[in-house]
Design a protein around this nucleic acid. Structure first.
Length: 517
RNA sequence: GGCGGCGUAGCCAAGUGGUAAGGCAGAGGUCUGCAAAACCUCCAUCAUCGGUUCAACUCCGAUCGCCGCCUCCA
């Protein structure tokens, strides 16, 4: 059973979809007037993972993430730069899609634009006016906050207390300072659409109500976004929708803020780090690890140190997967083959533990922890194998590998590429090469002299001749040196391999290489 | 001032009414031609003070500290 923390009730609740077997998620996307920063990426990742997990749990899931492409801030930016607001919106929409794409996770199922939802927005405003919840004034339309009894139920605010600190603005048509615009009369040069109240554009908030209801229908399952949107944005979304007689989201999920130097990362504070800059320096898997090793509701500090930690953690996973592959590929060299039911059981237990964590309010941090626990247990087992205390169980290792890669898949983290790069000396090609090498050792120095003395030249000669991967060949060559106790040659080759971007490890089954990340 | 959240080892971070996952770093050891990786051992009584309970880090209250929202904000 999946349980989700609902901001509306302030507790974890069993997830009960509106439609059996289906789930609909609406996540607040960006207003496109700037490049997305790390903070913006957190909900993008969080709700993509939620969708992934719900699908794994056999729910046909739809994720809708809006793009608000008409808004005061866009217009302000356009004015400041002397440009057209539409051009600004288009530019940053493209940048948003390009930047988030680099995370390498599937896009939302629907990414509707506010500007493509104008008729629905106008309809909604008409309904609000008809019901007495909104009123037109000077070409704008305002929502009458005090007309909606439930106002404040999400943010736990009471209207009378809000009244105290409300911003004094100079919108002459407002009947109550708490009221907010659902439709704004357009000034000349601003993007505008015909409406019953004259030319204008949507107010902030209304577009999300309209898009959520349009794509997911009334009473949809989950609405997500950053914690900072609870008030007023989400509160207003609820008011607008429900005052119009349309039940809104059942479960509200809010991710915690990303902080930088102890403060919320925000453009206004000036402590932002752009997503694209981070992705220039760290591979997507590391960035995902960074996000997912903290629970989505907790605040998360941003720093290169934290990214480096995520990188180190990911490297352990990568190495573990690589080591498993290496052992499996070199199983023939194992001293003792057999079954280890215990390891198989642990793999299964880890799979279940992972699922339990994920079911519990998307506890990705705990879930990743279970994966690492499995890695530790596997290494412990492998050590026992090396000491001859227990047999090597290839199938059990494959089970572990499957649990690891499938679980990472649920988190949208790609199986570490390093694993695939590890070239075991005992592959089919490698064994053929080994036969050739051992049978024709005399050729090696000649090949070495033929090139400029670097291992990859030799490798090229032999790889071409033997049809095997170069790294694999270098491993064989090094094994040869080591068997012959030609330490200086072996060490030099290792240096060269390291220069070429490989980590080199000696094992009882031969030289193992891991491509450095 | 109102509303909400957080405070777990050097750092990061899960977690349960019955004496604390995991990652990074550190110390010692094993393995290794050297190295790397790995393994083993060591490293917290959960901000403070009270209360409830047979038993609390986990429930309640207070205190201190930090953060978010109340204005644009993921």
């Amino acid at each position: 059973m999946i349980r989700l923390f609902n901001s509306l009730t302030h507790q974890k609740e069993p997830f009960e979809p509106r439609d059996a077997g289906k789930a609909g998620i609406y996540c607040c996307g960006p207003t496109v007037y700037n490049l997305v920063h790390v903070g913006n990426a957190r909900p993008y990742v969080t709700f993509a993972v939620l969708r992934s997990w719900l699908r794994h749990r056999r729910l046909e899931t739809t994720l809708v993430t809006n793009i608000t492409d008409v808004d005061d801030k866009i217009i302000a930016k356009a004015n400041a730069e002397g440009r057209d607001a539409t051009a600004i919106a288009e530019e940053y929409t493209a940048a948003y899609i390009a930047d988030t794409d680099r995370l390498g996770i599937p896009r939302p199922d629907v990414e509707p634009r506010a500007t493509e939802t104008i008729p629905e927005i106008i309809d909604l405003v008409c309904q609000l006016i008809a019901g007495g919840h909104a009123y037109a004034a000077h070409g704008s339309v305002y929502f009458r906050v005090r007309s909606f009894a439930g106002y404040g139920k999400l943010s736990k605010q009471r209207i009378d207390e809000l009244d105290e600190g409300v911003r004094v603005d100079n919108e002459p048509g407002k009947a109550d300072p708490l009221d907010f615009a659902v439709w704004k009369a357009a000034k000349s040069g601003e993007p505008a659409w015909e409406s019953p109240w004259g030319r204008g554009r949507p107010g902030w908030h209304i577009e999300c109500s309209a898009m959520g209801l349009r794509y997911l229908g009334a009473g949809f399952d989950v609405h997500g976004g950053g914690r900072d949107l609870i008030f007023p944005h989400h509160e207003n979304e609820i008011a607008q929708s429900e005052a119009a007689g349309l039940p809104f989201a059942k479960v509200w999920m809010h991710n915690g803020m990303i902080r930088s130097e102890g403060e919320k990362m925000a453009k206004s504070v000036g402590n932002i780090f752009l997503l694209r800059e981070v992705l220039d320096r760290y591979e997507p898997a590391v960035v995902l690890m960074y996000f997912l090793t903290t629970h989505y509701r907790s605040p998360l500090e941003f720093s290169t140190g934290k990214l480096d930690e995520a990188k180190a953690a990911y490297a352990r996973l990568r190495d573990a997967l690589g080591d498993i592959d290496f052992r499996v590929a070199n199983a023939a060299k194992a001293a003792l083959l057999g079954e280890c039911p215990d390891l198989t059981l642990r793999a299964t237990a880890a799979r279940l533990a992972f699922a339990e964590r994920m079911d519990d309010d998307l506890n990705t941090a705990g879930a990743v922890g279970e994966l690492f626990a499995l890695v530790s247990e596997t290494y412990r087992y492998l050590s026992e194998v090396d000491r001859g205390e227990t047999p090597l169980d290839v199938e059990a290792l494959r089970s572990v590998r499957r649990v690891l890669t499938e679980s990472l898949g649920h988190l949208l983290i790609p199986a570490p590429s390093g694993a695939a790069e590890i070239t075991p000396a005992g592959t089919v090609a490698g064994n053929e090469a080994l036969a050739c090498v051992t049978g024709d050792v005399a050729l090696l120095p000649a090949a070495r002299l033929a090139g400029d003395g670097r291992w990859d030249d030799i490798v090229l000669v032999y790889a071409d001749r033997l049809g095997c991967a170069d790294a694999s060949y270098a491993c064989l060559l090094r094994d040869h040196y080591r068997v012959e106790k030609q330490w200086s040659d072996a060490d030099r080759l290792r240096d060269e391999m390291q220069e070429a971007g490989f980590e080199v490890r000696d094992t009882s089954q031969g030289t193992q290489v891991v491509r450095k990340s």
